[in-house]
Computed example of a mutant assay.
Amino acid sequence: MALSGTLTRKAVGVLGPGRHGDGNGLYLVVDSSGARRWIVRLTITGRRNARGGPLRTDLGLGSVSLVTLGEARDRALECRRLARKGIHPSERSERVRPTFEEVARRVHEERLPTFRNAKHGQQWINTLSTYAFPQIGGTAIDRIGQPEVLACLSPIWTSKHETAKRLAQRIKTVLDVARSRGLREGENPVTAIREGGVLPKVRARATHHRAMRWQDVPDLYARLRERDATAARALMFTCLTAARTGEVLGARWAEIDLVRRLWTVPAERMKAGAEHRVPLTEEMLTLLGAQEPLGSEVVFEGQKRHAPLSNMSMVMLLRRMGIEGVTVHGFRSSFRDWAGEAGAPREVAEMCLAHRVGSAVEQSYARSDLLERRRRLMEEWSRFVASRG
């Protein structure tokens, strides 16, 4: 007989997006897409997570379309009984295997400390939640074959090809882990689908950020000088530093060393995951001097106190100025083209862009970031960009 709780069968079908508790660790999760599923929150007795704390986990119990409220309560009760004995339900030895969603969430939980940041970890499970769980989340892990994988991949294989490739890799990882733990046997169906050419080939188009000709950058910079707005100064700083939009907008005064004339972007904000030092030129220091009196924690503050400008602020500024056909990211290309024309050594120009230079072996021996050589090149670039003023 099923236990009682706070939810009702009617509520299960009408509640909006969010996590709705039934009691005793059981939750109804309603995704923004409208998909509805059950999870139970557990603490595994005597088990520790990667940080040494108690092992807590959210375990999927299946879709609402497959599992009734009463069944979800029964399953949650059984999971709690196992957890109190120190057994993770996804490792139980009964004949009934855990579901794909159960194993996937366990894999995600175990790998959280290995992701570069929390955002990437969330993206990993979000891809499965959006495209895999609605199709195969409630299917036993040992029943997942090519038809089940294709049910997830086929609908988005051509329309969202990059997403589909990431989804395939994440499904493969879950199934590989399941096999290593004795939860399934045989070849991974994702591998079979790839090697068999089951899905159509999709020609990926190379996309490039549209860049302004380097010869035209000084004229733009002169026009920006006439504007007394944070967005204009942020765009000027972006042009001068050849940094990415997110790096500039996320810049904080704690990263700026005015004495040593350095802006040190921490690894967690860099695409390559490595700290990047940007030499500050006289022109850059002038821009920073105009922002410093605002007393914000961030260099380029937006509408909210101590919060940066929006990602679209510089793009919208270009549009208001009637400049079409270029992107903010494209100014990195403008700098690189100028550097090539100026005869700058390739490794110096590439390091200005925070690109890795050489093979993995060469990188392992490259201890210097060529700061002083980069400083001289950035000074030349700054003088060129500001030459119309």
Rank of each mutant, 00 (worst) to 15 (best):
E101T: 00
P89I: 09
T130D: 14
D58G: 05
I125H: 10
A104C: 04
T127F: 14
L128H: 04
R106H: 03
R111F: 13
I136V: 02
G70F: 09
S65P: 03
V96S: 03
P98G: 08
E102L: 00
R106D: 05
R73D: 15
G138D: 15
G86P: 00
S65D: 07
R111T: 10
T99D: 08
H120P: 02
E91I: 00
P113E: 15
L61N: 07
S93M: 08
F133Y: 07
G60T: 08
R80K: 13
L128R: 00
E102P: 01
W124C: 00
R95F: 09
E101S: 03
V107P: 00
G62A: 01
N126M: 08
T99N: 05
E110G: 02
V96C: 01
G137E: 08
V64T: 12
P113K: 11
Q135N: 04
R105A: 03
I141A: 07
A83L: 10
L112K: 14
V107N: 06
S93H: 05
E91G: 02
G60W: 14
K85M: 08
R111I: 12
P98L: 12
S63R: 01
V107C: 06
L128D: 02
D74M: 11
N117V: 07
S65M: 05
E91L: 04
A83M: 11
P113A: 09
P134L: 10
T127M: 09
R73G: 14
T68H: 00
Y131Q: 14
S90H: 08
